[in-house]
Structures are given as structure tokens and as C-alpha cells.
Nucleic acid binder design. Structure first.
Lengths: 208, 208
DNA sequence: GACCATTGCTACGACGTCGAAGTAATGTCC
DNA sequence: GGACATTACTTCGACGTCGTAGCAATGGTC
């Protein structure tokens, strides 16, 4: 046996120093300050992502999920009709269509989701969550909440600051449609997730 | 031909709304507030990462690099002796050993790096950057600086706030060794990258 | 109502990543 | 100095992602 030190605690040893600040120091010697601060932002985000994704991924693996599959599941669970079109998933979560196919394939194999024909558009497919899918998603959420989300080393104020700064970064990079976002978010908050999504998708949602 | 709208500008259409805030609203209805804010932090980091990684990746592809290979190159370029051990790379950049092997394999294929035997420890291999590697890394850096890093939609104050918050997050998650970090960073800032790294590695660096 | 661009999805293949197991060299302890 | 643990690296195989190309359905236009 003889597990090495690396196997203790989390999945990986800490780096011997803060690579972000070290890189910033190097950049400042060779390039312009705005390049250095921008590089530091990317490096910090990358490493924060890896850190958290690692922890989240470990939780998901316990439930035989990946984060991508889990995320799709939670959106399906939230939807009033328990189903979403694959293209909606692709656009909203910004997952390439081929990857969505892949994800739904796997979820369907595991009986967490079912493909259903769209009532009025023969081109589109609906993914519908099964009772089993609901159960799995709920348990996984409780787990990841307790294991990762609640334990992030920032207080509520700092979390707010952080998400605000990142929202600005994403908005300026066109990660989401800033115009329409507010109203939609409000509606989601009051249980109207899918219908509220503006744009061309709604033409298919003539069921309601 | 007939390129679809998705092909315009950046690699992907913006999402129809801010998924982070929408998810937060959902979470707040079902779970505890700390879980909701933690989830929002992860979601925001994930999406910021995807946004930037996409842009950075596109730049790197122009130079026939991935970000991982590029990052290794820049660390090699910065090193006073233009070479680092594979295990140092693995530990510092937190890349699993197998992936480092893979990365160096590829860089060696492209003649950007050369494997050199370690003078005093037959187990360890040094990766040494070639003149060609230096050139490629420099050009790629100029490109990514101008194309991505300088254009991040935050001013200098906000960038500082953001990297500080993320530093705290990473530190609390043990992403790097907080104790020794400061001194090392300082030395890197004055051109002593490799030697400064405390711990067991230095035993091999008896060349200097 | 016949074109033709667009949309929705899928099959295929390439790529990067990483866990696990294996080999070789080295360090340690009695 | 011999046994045993540790360290360094590689090989192998599996996985998830995504670009590309293809097919089918649809909608607009004349």
C-alpha cells in the first residue's frame, strides 16, 4: 500500500508558492502593466477554477455524474414542465451541440433523462427528467452544497463582490445577453424558467 | 459557404441571460443562503474561465500551442538556466506527472524544448528551452497580451480586487503554500525563479 | 409550390487530460 | 550492505470535449 503524501486530504499537494503573483512579477519586468494585471486575472481565475472544479468533480463522481451532466439535470429539475429542448440547453449553458448530444446520451443510458419528441416541431427533441433523475440531482446537490459551496473561504460580502466583478468581466466579454438578462432572472426566481427565455426559442413553446 | 450567425465574432453566441444569477435565484428558493452564494461563486468562476480560456485557446492555436504547453514554455524562458525538472513543473504548476510527460513530448516534437539528463540525479530529467522555443513563446505572449489580457473589461483597481479575492479563495483551499509564498515571489521578481523554490527540490540544484 | 438558406440534431474522429500501474534510481535505517 | 520506502518518470487506457460534416425538417421568398 504505502500511500504517498499526495494522496492525503484533497487530490493534490499545494503548489510551493503563489504562481499567480510570481507570474505577475515576471510580467511586470517584461511587459506593460495592463498586460500583467490581465494575465494575473486569467491565471487567478484558471487556478481557482481548477481548485473548485477538482472538488466539485470529486463529489459528482460519487454520484456517477460529471458537472456538465449534473448541471443539465438541475436545469431540467427546475423547469416547470421537467423538460427542455436540446438546443435551449446548448444556447443557454453554452455547450456545443455535439456535447449536448453526448451528455443526453449518457444521462439517458443511466435512466436519469428521457428523449421525447417535440409536439409541434419534428426537428427538435426534448429531454425530460425522470423521477430517478430528480432523486439523483437532489442528493448530489445536497452533497456539493455541504462539501464545497458552503465551505468556500470567503464571507458573504466577499462572495458578492467576487460574483459582481466576474459578472462585469463576463458581460464585457459578451458571455451573456446583458439587455434581456434582468427580466429573465427575475422570472426564473418566481418559477418560470423556460418560458421566460426570450428570443426565437419561444416559438416552439406554444404548449403553455 | 453560408456561415451561420454563431460563426461571427467570437467562438460562441452569448447566452440569452446570466445563468449565474438565474441559478442563484433558484438556489435561494430551495437551499441555504451560504449554499446559494457559494454556488454562484463557482458558477461565476466557471463561466469566466470558459470565456477567457476560449479566447486564450484561440490565440494559442494560432501559434500551434495549447495553454498548458505555452505556460511551461514561459516558465522555462524565465528560468536563469533555461531548464527545469519535470517534477518541479508538475508540483509548481500542479499538473499531474503523466500530463507533464505528454506536454514535454509534444514540445520536444516541435523542437521547442529538449530533454537533458540531470547532472547529479539519474532519475530526473530536465526540460530545456531551445532558441526556437524562446521565439515562439515571445510571439505568443505578445499576441495574448494584446488580444486578451489587455482587453479584459475591468480597470486596474477592479483587477486588483479580483485577484485579491481569488488569492484568498485559493489560499483557503490550499492551492498554494501560503507560508513560503511571499519570499519566493519576491525572488522571482528579481530573477531567481528556480533556485528560490524552497523545499526538497533544491537539493538537485547544486549546479549554481 | 419549388427553391434555398437556416435550424436541430447526430455520427465520427482528433485531442488533451489524467488515474493507475509499472520501471528505474535513490535514500534510509538497522 | 541489504531490505524497504520513496521519488521520478513513462506507458497505457479511459474519459470528456468539441470541430466537422452530414442529414432531416422547416420557413421564407419569389
Amino acid at each position: 500500500m504505502a500511500r504517498s503524501k499526495a494522496a492525503r486530504g484533497r487530490g493534490f499537494e499545494p503548489a510551493p508558492f503563489d504562481v499567480v503573483e510570481a507570474s505577475r512579477a515576471v510580467w511586470l519586468r517584461h511587459w506593460e502593466p495592463e498586460a500583467a494585471s490581465g494575465m494575473a486575472v486569467y491565471a487567478a481565475i484558471l487556478r481557482s477554477y481548477q481548485l473548485l472544479a477538482d472538488e466539485v468533480g470529486r463529489v459528482m463522481r460519487r454520484h456517477d455524474l460529471t458537472f456538465a451532466r449534473y448541471e443539465v439535470l438541475t436545469w431540467l429539475m427546475t423547469d416547470p414542465e421537467s423538460s427542455l429542448t436540446l438546443s435551449w440547453i446548448s444556447k443557454t449553458l453554452r455547450i456545443p451541440p455535439a456535447t449536448v448530444t453526448n451528455i443526453i446520451d449518457r444521462l439517458e443510458q443511466d435512466k436519469l433523462v428521457r428523449r421525447v419528441a417535440h409536439p409541434s416541431d419534428a426537428r427538435t427533441t426534448l429531454a425530460e427528467i425522470t423521477p430517478r433523475g430528480r432523486k439523483v440531482a437532489t442528493v448530489a446537490t445536497e452533497d456539493v452544497n455541504a462539501t464545497v459551496y458552503q465551505r468556500i473561504g470567503l464571507d458573504e460580502d466577499q462572495r458578492r463582490q467576487l460574483t459582481d466583478l466576474l459578472a462585469q468581466l463576463r458581460a464585457s466579454g459578451n458571455e451573456f445577453d446583458v439587455e434581456r438578462s434582468d427580466e429573465v432572472v427575475e422570472k426564473v426566481g418566481s418559477r418560470q424558467a423556460r418560458k421566460a427565455v426570450g428570443g426565437q426559442d419561444n416559438r416552439h413553446d406554444d404548449v403553455a
